[in-house]
Simulated scan of single mutants.
Amino acid sequence: MIGTCLNEQLRTIAIFLSASSGHKFMAEFLEVGGVLTLLEIIGLKQAKEIDKSESLRCLHYIANAGRKYKELICESYGIRAIAECLAKSKSEETQDCCRNLLLMLAHGNPKFEVQVYKGLIALLPCSSPKAQQMAAQSLRVVQAIVKVANPSITDPLLNLLKTLHLEVQFEVIELIKELMDYEVADSLLAGLVTLLRPTKEETFHRPEILDDPDVEKINAPLPVFVQQAAAAKTIGILTRESNEISEKLIQARVTYNLLFAMGNMDYADSQRQASISLEYLCRTFPIVDDHVRDAMGESLYELFMVNPEALYVNMSHVQADVLVSNKVNIPKLVEKIE
C-alpha cells in the first residue's frame, strides 16, 4: 500500500472501476477486499497525498455504482476514515475529494445519511480551516437531506465564530441562517446573545502562543472578542431576515448585550458590528429605540443614529462604561405593557 508504483496501480484500477461495463471488474475488486484496502491507504500517515487522492477517486467510482455500493463503503467504517482524512490532509485536492465523496454517500443512501451528517458535525472543531469550511458548506447540503437538526450542532458552530478565517465564518453564518427553520433555532439564538457578553475569565485568558518569548509578537485579538464581533454580525444578518427572529432576540435581552458589546474598547470590530445590528433594531422596533435612547443619553444616542458604524471612533471611555453597565431589560417591560 506504500510500495513502488502505487499511484500507477491505483490509476490502472480506476480505469476498470469507471468503465461503463466494469461491474464484473468491480465485483472482483470488492471480493478481494478492495474497499478496505482503499480506506486503509487514505488513513496511512506515510502515504503520499497523490496516492490518497487516487484512492478516493476509486472509492468515488464505487459509490457512484449505486446504493448497495455506498452502503458497503459505510459498513466498512468509510465515513469515519474519509472524515479523518479530510481533517488531517494538507492537500486541498485530497480534501476536495473527501468532501465530494461524503456528499455522494449522503445522497440516495437513507440508511447512512444521518451518520454522514454526524461525521460532518464532528469535523467542525478540527484544526484545519479548510476542513472546517468544507464541513460547514457540506452540512448546508446534508441538512436538507436529513431534514432534522441534531442539537449537537449548536456548540461547535458557535465556537467556530472565533475563527480568524473569514471564509470559515461566512459558511458558519450561512449555515446558522438555514438552521433558523429547524428546532435548534432557539438554542442558536440564545447562544449568539450570550456570546455578546463574555465572562471576565474569558476576557483575561490569553492563548499561550501570544506570550511565547520565542514567537514574534503579534497584536492578534483575543478569540473571545473575535467571537463577540462575529455574533453581533450574525445577529444583524438574522434580524434583517425576519421580524419573528428579531422579536425572539429582543426577548432574549439582545439589546442589553449589544450595548455591552458596543462598550468593548478592547476590540473595535465588536463595537462596530454591535452598533450596526442595534441601529437596525432601533429603526424597526420603537420600544427598542426608546430604551436605547434612555440607556445612552441624548448626545451619544444622536452620534449613534447619525453614523452607527463609526460610533466607536467618537466614543469616550466614560460613554463606553455607561454602555457596559446598562440595565436595559425589555422583556419585563413588554410584559407590563401587555
Rank of each mutant, 00 (worst) to 15 (best):
C5F: 10
N7A: 03
L161T: 04
V313R: 14
E338V: 07
T163N: 12
L222P: 11
P198M: 03
E183K: 12
L158H: 05
G236M: 02
I287G: 01
P213I: 05
V322W: 02
H107D: 14
S187I: 14
G33M: 06
E49M: 11
A231V: 10
L281Q: 01
N100V: 11
R11Q: 07
A268Q: 06
V172I: 12
E201G: 00
D289P: 00
V114C: 13
D181V: 09
Q115T: 15
H107K: 14
L196Y: 03
V141K: 13
V116H: 15
S76W: 03
E167Y: 12
V254S: 06
M134T: 04
A232I: 05
I209P: 00
A87P: 04
L166H: 10
L123T: 12
P125E: 14
L17N: 02
R253V: 04
A19H: 10
K336H: 09
K111P: 03
T284R: 05
L44Q: 08
Y312E: 07
C58M: 01
C282M: 03
C85V: 14
N219K: 06
V116M: 15
R253K: 15
S275T: 02
R293K: 12
S128Q: 09
D289Y: 03
M315W: 01
M265Q: 06
P207E: 05
E183M: 12
I73P: 00
A268C: 01
G66M: 09
V116Q: 15
T194H: 10
K233E: 03
P331Y: 03
V116T: 15
T203H: 03
M104E: 10
L38A: 04
V142A: 04
R140F: 03
Q115C: 15
F285T: 00
E338G: 09
V141W: 08
N257E: 13
E171W: 06
V288Q: 01
R240Q: 13
R99T: 13
A87Y: 07
Y280N: 00
K217E: 11
H23A: 02
E31K: 10
S270E: 05
A232C: 08
I218D: 10
R272L: 10
L179M: 08
P110E: 09
Y256C: 08
D266H: 10
I82A: 05
V184C: 09
L323K: 02
